[in-house]
Design a protein around this nucleic acid. Sequence first.
RNA 1: UGGGCAGUAGUUCAAUGGCAGAACACCGGUUUUUGGUACCGGGGGUUGUAGGUUCGAAUCCUACCUGCCCAGCCA
Length: 760
Amino acid sequence: MSESSNFLAEQIQADLEQGTYGGRVVTRFPPEPNGFLHIGHAKAIVVDFGLAQRFGGRCHLRFDDTNPVGEDTLYVESIQRDVRWLGYEWGEHLYYASDYFPKLFAFAERLIREGRAYVCSLSLDQIRETRGTVTEPGTPSPDRDRPVQDSLRLLREMREGKHAEGAYTVRAKIDMAHPNMKMRDPLMYRIRHAHHHRTGDSWHIYPMYDFAHGLSDAIEGITHSFCTLEFENNRALYDWFVEAIFEPPVPHQYEMARLNLSYVVLSKRKLITLVREGHVWGWDDPRMPTLAGLRRRGVPPEAVVAFVEQVGVSRADSLVDVALLDHTVRDYLNTRAPRRMGVLDPLPVTLTNIPEGEGRRIELDEWPHDIPRQGSRAVPLTRHLVIEREDFAVDPPKGFKRLTPGGRVRLRGAGLFTCEEVLTDQAGQITGLRGRLDPEGAPGPKVAGTIHWSSATAGVEARVLLVDRLFTLERPDDHPDGALAVLNPDSLVERRAVIEPALAQAPAGTRVQLERLGYFIVDEAAQSDQPPTLIRIVPLKDSWAAKASPAEPAPPPAKKDPGRKRVRKSASEALQELIEVRPEIADRLDRLEADGLSEEDAAVIGTDDGLFELYAQAVAQGADQVAVVNWIVNDLRAVTKERPLETLSLTGAALAELIALVTQGEITTAVARKVFARVIEGEGSPIQIVDRQGLRPIRDPARIEAWAAEVVQANPDKVQAYRQGRTNLRGFFVGQVMRASRGKADPAMVNRVLDRLLAG
RNA sequence: UGGGCAGUAGUUCAAUGGCAGAACACCGGUUUUUGGUACCGGGGGUUGUAGGUUCGAAUCCUACCUGCCCAGCCA
């Protein structure tokens, strides 16, 4: 990925700076070979390979083939093709999770020997029942304490195929009451008498994802393991297995939001349905969001990569507008697809001043004036032409710049055509136009429009496929009747077009712009003995269509389930229950409220032994109660979220000392925060730290004045804006002065000085 | 509902306690032998809500609201 800032790149950067992995960056792309890759996978590929590339690391391609059913070498080939198509190379780092089966088996034996795993004989249903629910703990398996030797023996028997599917599983012994359901003795192995596409019939047990994945990462020396948000809960397990077997530094998992695209479905199941029910030709149908489909449609891989890079990476669920993909495709193709002409909906035109059978070849540039590339092709100009039916209007709307009866228009590269006669049939349908072609600059009205055309006699018939979105709803899955209910009936429209001869001879895979129509690719199905097929990759932007036809009505709002009712224990109820168990808490609360704390603050401090003790100590040293509470509630708790209080070097005395420093004006609040951060790391008492670091505030009016004057002088435009009312620039000025003083200036004084200087 | 995660412009993302920005989308204009491209400009924001800490909060703390994930022997 290029230089975009995102939390994954920052993580790698931080690990590089801290030397976590000795400067190594190794990522992996781990598809399961049981389906085709789609544009959602493209995001993963660009992140996995791109980030490794950007930081001078490498990315492994590893097939996560831990479940033989549905997996096939067909998919491993198509996946490799797709990754290469996007422009990424894994070199010698092609791996299969199945290559690690022997190692994983040994790991399982080790965990059993260490009493951290066991063979369980519960049935599928029993396992489900004993797992509990999200609100109730599970119950331990009766086999949880099966003797190690028994488990070991059973494990070997399972491997050798001596037991039926479902008879036994291997489970990690973690915690059946864990609030994270993934940690309730998860399965490591299940029995499957199935043929594996690589290991054949040599195994009768296959490892589960959670057991295999992190350990496979660790085996390969992966440093950063990126996956999607739905694996967040699995991270605890990932760490459990990896840390049980490997010594640090171990790989870490980071989750990002998966890619969602408007008017598209990306779930494997729904894509299969589209194929199986015949809504599309197959996996490479140009309407499909599969990489095979995008390739067939002609979308350049570079545009897909650019698209993913522009979407960015974050942890927020989101829905990306397909218009962004269209944009990156056009942006890439504009300077790379030579121009050609073709008419999709032909209307015959006779040039009355060119004799029958007489024609000439005109040489037209392949590139418009603003693209600095050379090249031209010959285009036949004959008496009989075709133009686009919609480029002629008997009754033109306002602003119409094309042909009208008696009107004049430029035929691209050929001259100025004047429509002198409109031919119609019995039904009044327009069947053709007649008129004269004049050279450029001929007398007559100036023309506003230029239209494309093709020779009716020397042009070549072609089959053209116009591809549109597959669904009519932005979020097809949100439709109450399912995505199939909003299939777009016009997602694929076939036209008989007339194209210029130069295009008819282009080899399959050639991408061109048909002027005014869009970018097209010569389809691979094109054969010499039949009309060639062109697929439209993407239409040109059309600012006229938007103006000519009214905006489409907003899609119907997605139906939502009525909100579940929240039944939550109120804070005070919970507090009451706690007091019943621990009556001393009531006394504490009384004392705290007597000290003048709010009920909320009192509850926070009174219910936590450590915090209460800290508070009591600090107050005993004479510190102001409110200040103590603010430090504990606002600053300390930010830290104790991550690290327990006991691990911090913070005493009530130190806190009191810090507060005294602030109230006596020895240090500023901002500095006090820095000091606080050092105190909890055990770097000494506040006074020691302040003295050692020279953190006392600068109150010398002359120095502050000098800094302030400098800032004011350096930003005359901002000073003016401030004086004109943009008072939110105050933060900017204060910030600049604070920065100049490296955070040591007394902000109150800075504000006073600035007040004077900015008053004008 | 127990746990986890997330809310910044119409959309996708930046801003790492100090001026709320970019791209796409939308709307104008200039250029143009593509109603394309390029260039210029514009509208758009109570940073989910309410409190608190701070000289100063999108950013730190709290509560609430909304959405997503977890009860496969799938990955």
